[in-house]
C-alpha cells in the first residue's frame, strides 16, 4: 500500500508517521509538501499532527486552503482513505470533510499524556483489527481537542455509528474524570458518513512500537493495510 503524508509548515508528527508506516508496518510512504498538488498515486492520505501555520486564526483554518488540500478533498470524496490525526483532525473539520470542530481543552491547558480510548466501531477500514469495546492506550498532545458539534450533528453521529473512539477509564467506563479535554460525548475520533475519512485527536503513531511505550496504535495502520490487501486481491 502506498501512503502519502502531507507536510504543512508547522507539522511535527509527519516523521513519526513516515517511520511507523515505512519501518513498522512496511508500506511505501512519501511526504508531500502542502504546496504540491499531486498525491502521487497514494491510496492512503494522512494529515499529521502539529501546529500548521502556527495555529494562527484557528487550528487548521489556514492549512485547509493549502494547494494540496484540493487533491485531498477529491481523494476523500472518491471514497479513498484519509486519516487526520490531531492537527490533521482539525484540518478535516475546517475543510468540511468532517462535521463539528475542536474547542480549547476545558482546562485551557495543553495536555500531553497517555489516555484510554474505547473502540466504538470496529467495522470501519481503520479499525478492523480491533474489537468493539476494546480499550486502547494512546497519547494525546493538544490544546484544542474538545470535540464540539451541534446536538443534531451529535445525534446523527451516534445514529450512524460514526463515533469511532471515546475517551474512557482504563476499564472502558465513560466518566468526566477520563474526558481530558471536555469533548462532547467523550468523542476522540469520528468518521464521515461513507466511513473513509477518520479524524482523531489521539496519536496512534506515537504508540506503534512497544519500545516507545505502547503498540495499540499500530493496529489502526495494520487495519488499513489489511483492508487494502483485501481490496486489491478481490
Amino acid at each position: 500500500m502506498k501512503a502519502a503524508v502531507i507536510v504543512f509548515p508547522g507539522s511535527n508528527c509527519d516523521r513519526d508517521i513516515i517511520d511507523v508506516l515505512g519501518d513498522v508496518v512496511g508500506c511505501s510512504v512519501t511526504a508531500i509538501w502542502h504546496q504540491d498538488r499531486s498525491l502521487q498515486d497514494a491510496h492512503l492520505v494522512i494529515l499529521p499532527g502539529g501546529f500548521s501555520f502556527g495555529d494562527y486564526l484557528r487550528c487548521g483554518a489556514i492549512a485547509r486552503f493549502s494547494p494540496i488540500m484540493e487533491s485531498v478533498i477529491s481523494h476523500a470524496l472518491a471514497g479513498n482513505p484519509v486519516l487526520g490525526i490531531c492537527n490533521g483532525f482539525q484540518v478535516l473539520t475546517e475543510c468540511g470533510l468532517l462535521p463539528g470542530t475542536l474547542m480549547p481543552n476545558k482546562s485551557l491547558r495543553f495536555i500531553c499524556r497517555d489516555v484510554h480510548v474505547r473502540v466504538e466501531n470496529s467495522a470501519t477500514m481503520f479499525t478492523t483489527l480491533f474489537q468493539k469495546g476494546q480499550v486502547l492506550n494512546l497519547p494525546i498532545a493538544h490544546a484544542d481537542g474538545g470535540y464540539y458539534a451541534e446536538e443534531e450533528v451529535l445525534k446523527e453521529l451516534e445514529l450512524k455509528n460514526r463515533v469511532i473512539f471515546r475517551y474512557c477509564s482504563a476499564n472502558g467506563v465513560l466518566d468526566e474524570e477520563n474526558n481530558p479535554n471536555g469533548a462532547r460525548q467523550h468523542i476522540a475520533g469520528i468518521v464521515n458518513e461513507e466511513g473513509n475519512v477518520l479524524g482523531m485527536m489521539p496519536h496512534p503513531e506515537r504508540h506503534s512500537e512497544d519500545v516507545l511505550g505502547g503498540s495499540d496504535g499500530r493496529w489502526l495502520f495494520e487495519s488499513l493495510v489489511a483492508n487494502w490487501q483485501r481490496m486489491v486481491t478481490r
Binding site: L57, R58, A61, I62, T93, T101, M103, A149, E150
Partner: peptide
C-alpha cells in the same frame, strides 16, 4: 470563507 467558524 476563512475568518469565522460558524459552528462555534
Amino acid at each position: 470563507k476563512l475568518l469565522v467558524n460558524s459552528v462555534t
